[in-house]
Write a protein that binds this DNA or RNA. Structure first.
Length: 802
DNA sequence: CTGAGCCGGGG
DNA sequence: GTGTACGGCTCAG
């Protein structure tokens, strides 16, 4: 049959590979301009790695020995000499090519043992990622290539092709919204949980809510307590709608594993991918891949929002304005079974599920445009870019830059050889405790990347003891020296980032704010900024390929120097400095003087600084990194306070938030003290529901695997004895009761505890009072005053305290 | 005090 | 799939 090649214009969505007939085949999942979902194959790519010889080694002899390692199943097909660079210095390396990706590890280990070998490099780059790097392909971007149609009966797609030319980027699509035209599905399951945490071996999935970006929303319900048909229907829905992107909230650690287990129990196949027979596949670090679709866990993006401490779906959706908390239905999760079994309450449960799904889709609209840009820039597929750490995203880009520069990519350090020494970090100026009015927050723009560029910081420019160089930058205090004779690898990459970002920002100005084009470019410049800002942390990350502790140490040293100089400048101009952290300064908002500070820093120190925000009121305690501010718009920022953490009781969290709000809005500390006393009184008088006192902790492994007996572990054991089935992932809710012995022994399952058993003093001393004092102590309020509980403090209180 | 171990979100 | 975290807290010693 005569095959006719077609010219395809397609968007690269995901990449994987398989081994067919003893040869690797790269599989690109894509959609083309006609809207077809396609599988594109390339069977011409081969795995390889580099061998770096020791100085003076005989390259031909070494090449011969490498060839002799060849095994028939995956022969060494070539060993070539290549001129490359390693940490900026020219080297000749040997490039070893083989056939089967899995054999690389074996050859790597054998090669490393040969005499004359200094290092084996790039043997740990995933094969499919290697392909994208080498062909300079970025997921979510558009390409043009010639391809021949092929038959593939094992996929659920509109067609399959074999690439016959290398894809080249389609410039006309560069500024098109990469999400435009993609089919997005959000889903959320509810599980039956009569005994606290649902147990997938017996508790059915009862509701699956699904929402699509075309507006369709639906809910699937179990028949009573049987979920076999429900799961089959869910698979059918995905087949019918054929989404490109599947989003959920924490679905990688809950919904997918739970559904997989339920499917197994019911003898159903969870065939939701675009490959026949393939189920979602749990991979490392909790990521789950769905073949041919981008499975994105939006919780990964939520984790990066520093301002929200408790990252539950309802909190995050509320913060982002996706769905206000007071406008949605909420059901306490431990009551889900109760709501399911009651026909009236079931309606509420369904509404709750639909609000969760709607919120999830809403979060997708918030996060995915940014994620898609990160994908286009870092080179990681959208599902992986979400799950990857910032350092890993940046490293992927570094590897591409290294290839362009002919640089060999260093290996990660062996775990045991990584230096564990810490170094001095950023400087935090002593806050001025109290409430301050009209405060401007000044922020250095990309401070650490700017330092790296200005002083040419990097492992390749770091001078060893006694090493000479013409132009040298020495970090203040720490004395590390960097050669400025040639540009550092980091500098080259960061300069490209900074230039690129400036271009994008300039292009943005051509569009009205709020237009789709503006939004697209804004997300792009943000993604570039996030990657650039990760470069400092990257150097100090022990897992980094370009790890350089001295570099990170030098950057913070320059940073401390800079912020100290900026604060002095502000003071010398007569401005009060209230606080500063790393790259920010909180100063009195006197516009004229502030302008002078900005000018002095820009021209004198040659770094960019700007007004980030203004607070009409802000208060600091004596503690660093904790403050609460009131913006001119009336919004309250609570930063750093720990009682907004998930493992504190609701009572402590509510109390602290309320105290912060009273103090900021009314300036009246007595009012706040009275409020706390009222809470304590209520607690003493048994007026607080046990539910407000529950402390929740998750069991991350089976009970008997714990060495230390934390309260929630002790309670889990107790629940097991009571006949509860406790599994990994169970959330244990406990309260502390009266009695003797260590705290752990006084923890009880909350549902077994009567209000009169509660150790009221624990909650007062360890929860309410510390949470409230975080704010109130600097107003001179003491523990005793809070605990006086409406009456005058007496000798009795004093003795009790002793 | 230091080090080891655990946690996050979900139901 | 040629294998990816991290910062903050608690408890034990």
């Amino acid at each position: 049959m005569q095959l006719v090649a077609e010219r395809l214009t397609f968007q690269l969505l995901d990449v994987s590979y398989s081994v067919e007939g003893g040869r690797p085949v790269i599989e690109i999942w894509a959609r083309d301009v006609k809207g077809r979902r396609l599988l594109l194959l390339d069977d011409t790519f081969r795995p390889y790695f580099y061998v770096l010889p020791q100085n003076g080694a005989d390259l031909d002899k070494l090449a011969e020995e490498l060839r002799r390692l060849s095994r028939p199943r995956s022969p060494v097909t070539s060993v070539e000499k290549v001129d490359m660079k390693y940490f900026g210095r020219p080297v000749t390396a040997l490039r070893v090519t083989t056939l089967i990706p899995e054999s690389v590890r074996e050859y790597r280990d054998l090669a490393a043992k040969l005499p004359g070998v200094a290092e084996v490099l790039e043997a740990d780059v995933r094969f499919s990622m290697r392909y994208l790097i080498d062909l300079n392909l970025y997921p979510m971007r558009w390409y043009v290539a010639d391809a021949e149609p092929v038959n593939r009966s094992d996929i659920i797609a509109d067609g399959a092709y074999r690439l016959v030319s290398r894809p080249s980027e389609e410039p006309s699509m560069a500024d098109v919204d990469p999400l435009d035209g993609l089919r997005i599905m959000a889903f959320d399951i509810e599980a039956y949980n009569p005994q606290g945490s649902p147990n997938p071996s017996k508790d059915p999935v009862i509701i699956i809510g699904v929402a699509f970006n075309d507006g369709e929303r639906l809910q699937l319900e179990a028949a009573g307590h049987s979920d076999k048909e429900l799961i089959q229907k869910f698979v059918d829905v995905i087949r019918r709608k054929d989404p490109d992107v599947i989003v959920g909230y924490n679905q990688n650690s809950f919904d997918w594993p739970y559904l997989l287990e339920r499917a197994k129990v019911n003898g159903v196949k969870l065939e939701v991918g675009r490959k026949r027979g393939a189920e979602p596949n749990p991979s490392v670090f909790g990521h789950i891949s769905v073949q041919g679709r981008l499975n994105v866990d939006l919780y990964n993006f939520a984790e990066e929002i520093e301002e929200v401490k408790v990252k539950t779906l309802d909190e995050v959706a509320d913060y982002l304005g996706v769905m206000p908390k007071d406008k949605r239905v909420n059901v306490d999760w431990w009551r889900i079974a109760e709501y399911w079994d009651d026909s009236e309450k079931r309606k509420t449960l369904l509404a709750y599920n639909m609000d969760d799904v709607t919120s999830t889709l809403g979060l997708a609209y918030q996060f995915l445009p940014f994620g898609a840009q990160l994908s286009q820039i870092s080179g990681l597929p959208l599902d992986q870019v979400a799950a990857a750490s910032v350092a890993f995203r940046l490293e992927m880009r570094f590897m591409r830059e290294a290839r362009k520069l002919g640089e060999l990519v260093p290996n990660r350090a062996e775990e045991e050889t990584r230096e564990l020494e810490t170094y001095t970090g950023a400087i935090v100026l002593e806050p001025k405790p109290g409430i301050h009015h009209n405060v401007a927050v000044l922020d250095f723009a990309s401070m650490y990347p700017s330092i790296m560029v200005k002083y040419n910081v990097g492992p390749d420019t770091l001078l060893k003891e006694g090493e000479a160089c013409e132009r040298v930058n020495e970090a203040p205090g720490v004395r590390h020296r960097f050669c400025a004779d040639r540009d550092a690898f980091f500098k080259r990459v960061l300069e490209r980032f900074l230039k690129w970002r400036a271009e994008v920002k300039a292009a943005m100005k051509k569009y009205p704010e709020g237009s789709p084009q503006y939004r697209l470019l804004n997300e792009r410049q943000r993604a570039i900024k996030v990657l650039a800002n990760a470069s400092y942390g990257y150097m100090g990350w022990a897992g980094a390929r370009w790890y350089c502790r001295q570099c990170a140490e030098s950057v913070t040293a320059w940073g401390r120097d800079l912020i100290t100089r900026a604060a002095s400048l502000a003071r010398s101009l007569g401005l009060k400095v209230y606080y500063g952290d790393t790259d920010s300064l909180f100063v009195e908002n006197d516009p004229e003087k502030v302008e002078k500070v900005i000018e002095g820093i820009t021209k004198g120190l040659e770094f960019d600084i700007k007004i980030d925000k203004v607070y009409s009121r802000v208060f600091f305690t004596e503690a660093k990194k904790r403050y609460a501010g009131l913006t001119p718009e009336g919004k309250i920022d609570i930063v750093g306070f720990e009682a907004v953490r998930g493992d504190w009781s609701d009572l402590a969290k509510d109390t602290q938030a309320k105290v912060a709000e009273i103090v900021l809005r009314s300036d009246d500390v007595r009012k706040a003290v009275d409020y706390v006393r009222q809470v304590i009184n209520d607690l003493r008088n048994g007026k607080v529901e046990v539910e407000k006192l529950i402390i929740w902790k998750t069991l991350t492994k089976s009970v008997d695997k714990y060495e230390a007996e934390a309260p929630h572990v002790y309670v889990a054991k107790m629940m097991e004895k009571l006949g509860f089935k406790i599994d990994v992932g169970s959330k244990i809710g406990y309260v502390i009761v009266k009695g003797d012995g260590p705290l752990s022994r006084r923890a009880r399952p909350y549902f077994l505890v009567k209000p009169q058993d509660i150790d009221v003093n624990y909650y007062i001393d360890k929860q309410i009072v510390p949470a409230a004092l975080r704010i109130l102590s600097f107003f001179g309020i003491s523990e005793r005053e809070l605990k006086a509980g409406g009456r005058q403090a007496s000798l009795f209180d004093y003795i009790n305290k002793k």
